[in-house]
Every structure is written in structure tokens, then in C-alpha cells.
Design a protein around this nucleic acid. Sequence first.
DNA 1: CTCGGCTTCTTGTCTAGATATCTAAAGGAG
DNA 2: CTCCTTTAGATATCTAGACAAGAAGCCGAG
Lengths: 262, 262
Amino acid sequence: MAALASGLLGSLDPTSDRAVFRQIADHLREAIDKGRFAEGAKLPSESELVEHFSVSRMTVRNALSILQSEGLVSSEHGKGVFVRPRPPVRRLASDRFARRHREQGKSAFIVEADAAGSRPEVDNLEVKEERPSTDVSARLGAPRRVLARRRRYLLDGRPVEFATSYLPLDIARDTPIAQPNPGPGGIYARLEELGHTLDHFEEEIRARMPSPLEIKTLQLATGVPVIHLIRTAFDTKGRAVEVCDTVMAADAYILNYHLPAK
Amino acid sequence: MAALASGLLGSLDPTSDRAVFRQIADHLREAIDKGRFAEGAKLPSESELVEHFSVSRMTVRNALSILQSEGLVSSEHGKGVFVRPRPPVRRLASDRFARRHREQGKSAFIVEADAAGSRPEVDNLEVKEERPSTDVSARLGAPRRVLARRRRYLLDGRPVEFATSYLPLDIARDTPIAQPNPGPGGIYARLEELGHTLDHFEEEIRARMPSPLEIKTLQLATGVPVIHLIRTAFDTKGRAVEVCDTVMAADAYILNYHLPAK
DNA sequence: CTCGGCTTCTTGTCTAGATATCTAAAGGAG
DNA sequence: CTCCTTTAGATATCTAGACAAGAAGCCGAG
């Protein structure tokens, strides 16, 4: 067993002033980068690494925790530490809200996932009226109360995105938008039917580490950041008619945007 | 000293099956979220936490390392553990490449930073010809060699962004673009002067944890992801004339985009 | 054959230290 | 007063071990 590790890993440099656990992490990282451990492959067990490098177990665990926080590996209790496979990514095109994509009966998420050969799911649906946060309130022009639509999106059983739409009550109350299923084309189609022809969207993007709640909701592995996207939809009168707050597992997404040079 | 910690922190629940170090992390996180420790404030020292919770030092360090990987706190050797202050963010507007912003003598980065009251710097400038990576090559239409322009941007001495522009040699060789300082309006102004009128840009955004090199180059604290942006510039003939690969400290940026509803 | 228990290997959690190194403040020499 | 040394307190690194708990295979009872 230890022979396997010796073949794939180097040895420590006792003259280096780099901490031992960092050196071990460096060796493992290099081995992974060079493909000596394939995606999904199991790394040598902690006790094998202890023997190979002649260090204590805590030192080995410290090294492994570095690789975990880098998102390179993930550990599974009772099984081992594995090279994290890259999940299939969802590409968000910059024209994803174009009117022509809204004609179908199914939602954009379902259509796209089917096309990519993945099994889409939407759950956690919650629709209710509430008092907006100061941020949402400011973006929507300070309505007293808003309709909040929450849902979670999954691909092949894996949660990838968690979103909440906020709409002013004077627009959404007692309309199909306040129903769990707003019908074909989603709430944007309904907004246009209600006379709020959409003009443009503003998107605001951040990236950060997830909160414990986000880790739980999106079942995120250690070392996976989230992309936080806040989209505001404006109608042709210049009014903000919807704010959508989305938290995405960063390893599952690539966002595409088209910018005119003007 | 321990009295201070007792006032601000709760106590452990011995009946809970949640690991002790997680409970400690939860307590500290809650105290930070509720503002009981302000931005930049020093957390109780490890030994104070050891005494307060009656656990061993490794358990306390384990808890603190969780908060570090969440980007909530950062430790300073010999000083203490501090609540991480939110750095000023740079907002990238969706019209930042509009022609009208290109008229000035200074680069967009300098102008913008001056306006925000920050002290901008650009360093690490390197301009050289090289063989493109397969990815860059594919985006640029498979040129044999490209001109690479590398630079790092800093605000008030803090590195925030690291970017490399790639241009096909038949466009850039023996032009001001191959000079360290390409002149007023930057390389986009020069491209247009050379007859490559810009039509649009495509941007591709990912977020992930930084590599050790990126941590070093951007002096990133633990728990800070990076935003990886790849922009391709197209001229009016539909040719890709430049690819810009940018890695940004995620805590220093908010990206804004404008999407027409069409 | 199937099912349940046992064993073994794995990672998870926690303890109780030891030594090193960095920081900042106090104190002494000049 | 200034400068250097000392010292206390902080985090960083590492060790050696203990017990818990999950996963998986072996193997005997039925």
C-alpha cells in the first residue's frame, strides 16, 4: 500500500522552511494536477500518508484540509479522500431572457436541462407575501410589501441554484404570478400579459464563500464558492417590476454576457 | 479577559450531537453576524476561548479555521484573530468598454480609481510574444503565436486583479499595442485606429477558489474566492481580435450587466 | 440461498501537551 | 530622549494517542 504512495508522491525537504503540512499538500496537489490521481480517484489513506511521510496524523489531516479548502478533493467519512470530479456546468447565455425563449410551455430551466441530457427538478417552492429587506425594497421603489417566490433547482438530483423572486404586491397580487405554477413562459410572460412589457434587465454579480445555510441548501462540498446574482427587471415605463436574488453553486455555472462596443 | 468572552458568547450544548468545534464556530459566527464583534475587531484569543468553553486548544483552532475558510475572520500571527473588514468594492459597469470612455488619456482603471478616491497602481507589466494555450488559440481562430500583455492592478496598495490580454501577432506586431504603454485609450483605441473597429465583446464568468499562485499574486486572505473572467473582443468583420483573461479578488468586485429584453 | 453480526479500514473528533515564531509593550543602557 | 533587549502573549506547527462513527466485506446462522 505504502509502495503505491511512494511511487506517486515525492518526499519532504527537511531543509525547507516551508511547513511540513504545506509540503505534503504541495506534493498531493502536484500529483493531482499532473493527473497521477484521476478525477474521482481515491487518495492514499491518512495512515498511508502518515507512514510515507513519517509525520503524525494531524499533520496529514492538516495537509488534506488545505486541498479541501481549495476545492481539489473532498473526503467521505469511512471511505476515503477523493479527487473532486468537475460537475457538468450550466452555461447561462446572455440572451436567456429573450422573448423568443419564452414562447414554450416549459420553463427555461427544464428545456435547457432536457437538451443537455440532464434530469431537471424544481423544489422548495414557496410563494408568500412579506415585508421586503431594505435592499430589495430600494431596488423595487420602496413597496411596503412584496410577493416572494422561492424555489430550488436541481440537475440529476444535485441542487445547483436557489432563487427568490420579489414582486411589488400591486403588480402580482391576485394574478397567476401569485400561483405556485404561474403557467407557460413563467412570470415574465405573465408580467407582459399584465401590461408590463419588459424592456431590460440589470444583473449584479458577486462571488463569495457560502453561509452554513447555503452549504446545506445547495449541498456544497468544502471549497466551493457561490455566485450571488441579483437581477432587476424593468418594464418599458422604466419601472422595476421584479428583483430576483439567486445563489448558485459556483462549480456548476459559467455565465456568458454579450456587451455591445457602442 | 474571559469575562469579556462570557458576555458575548453563549455556552456549549452537551446534549447536542453537533461537534463541539462546530458549536464554537456557530457561536462566534452568530456574535459576528449580530455585530457583537465589529469589523476589524479582535476575537477573544485562543487561550481565552479554551478557558471559556473548557476545551482543548486544537478544538478552538478547528473552530476558528472554519470561520477563516468562510472568509469571516483572518488570523494574524502574534496578534490575534480579527473580523475581516469588507474592502471597498470596484463596480464594473456593463458599459465600461463604450467608446466614449476611451477618449481620455488615462486608462479606465486609473480614471475610475481616482474618482472613487483610491490610489491606483499597475505593475507586473510584461509584454511578449508566445505560443497560445489551446483555449486562447481556439478563441482567437488558431493563430500560431500571439502577443501577450500581462499586468496587475492595485488599489491603495492592495492587488485586486491580474489580467493577460492575448492578440494575434498579425494584428499587434510592430504596433503601439506591442509597447509596454500603448498610449491613450489603451489597446482598444489602438485596435480601432488600425482598422479593427470593435463591434462587441463576449464575457465568460466563473468563480472558484484561487490556486496557490493566485493567492500569492493577489495576496488573498483565506476564504476569498476569485472571479475568473474571459473576455473576447470582436471587430465589425466578426473576427476575434483580442482575448483578455482576468482573475479578480472576489471580495473587491461587483460586476454589473445590462441585458436587453429583446 | 439470504440476512445479520463481526471485523477491519476509513475519516471525524478531541485531548494534552511541546516548541517555534511573531508582535507589541515594557524596561534598561547609553 | 533614543535604541536595544527582554518579556509576555499571541498564533503556527507538530506530536502521540484515544475513542467515535461510517462503509464495506467476510462469514456463519438460519
